[in-house]
């Protein structure tokens, strides 16, 4: 059986490697559940059967940061905790995204006082902010869909890991669209 016969029988798709990679990335975002306080309850509802984040390929909460590419910071971040959040963020492999879930995480919220970081964007690059105290699971799904759009628009950099690759820096891996 020739190639022509096989193609006409089985069908075929043309795409680019880049769009194939972003398609796979955006539909299998593995969240790192950084559930620090009450927002974590709504984050669980987001993964549960009613809101069902598995419809977006994000049901696999990764309790190890090394297998995660989306950090959902859900809760009040104190100055003491900020170092822990940062340490876990640093352990996640690139490319990675971050959702600041809830007002405490986004701006400090009602905790306008000395121990609470007034927004995690003071030490983390945040891609999506979710308002609410706590936000409904639907709001978190909206943020996830926004991240998916952002992933779809990004350009994955195909790195030659051969002998000419040299040192790979984090800045080489991040491509702003």
């Amino acid at each position: 059986m020739g190639l022509n016969d096989q193609i006409t029988r089985d069908g075929f798709v043309t795409t680019t490697v880049e769009s194939l990679i972003t398609w796979a990335q955006k539909n299998s975002l593995w969240p790192m559940p950084m559930g620090i306080s009450c927002c974590a309850i709504e984050m669980m509802a987001f993964g549960g059967p009613r809101a069902d984040s598995s419809r977006f390929g994000s049901e696999r909460f990764s309790f190890s940061p090394r297998q995660a590419d989306l950090m959902i910071v859900a809760g009040t971040v104190t100055y003491k905790m900020s170092w822990v959040v940062k340490k876990i963020w640093d352990q996640m492999p690139d490319p990675k995204w971050c959702i600041a879930m809830g007002v405490c995480t986004s701006t400090g919220g009602m905790f306008r006082s000395y121990p609470v970081v007034q927004g995690i964007d003071l030490f983390l690059p945040v891609d999506a902010y979710v308002s609410g105290c706590p936000p409904r699971p639907e709001a978190l799904i909206k943020a996830l869909m926004y991240i998916q759009e952002k992933v779809a628009e990004s350009k994955p950099q195909l790195i030659n890991l051969g002998k000419d690759s040299g040192d790979i820096r984090r800045s080489d891996l991040i491509v702003t669209p």
């Binding site: 006082s113 000395y114 121990p115 690059p125």
Partner: peptide, 22 residues
């Protein structure tokens, strides 16, 4: 000592360091 009355509500800048933003 943060619950003393002479401690400012928003704290003293620089007393609690944040991780660096890279």
């Amino acid at each position: 000592y943060p619950l003393r009355k002479d401690f400012p509500l928003m704290g003293i800048p620089g007393s609690l360091p944040l991780p660096p933003k890279d």
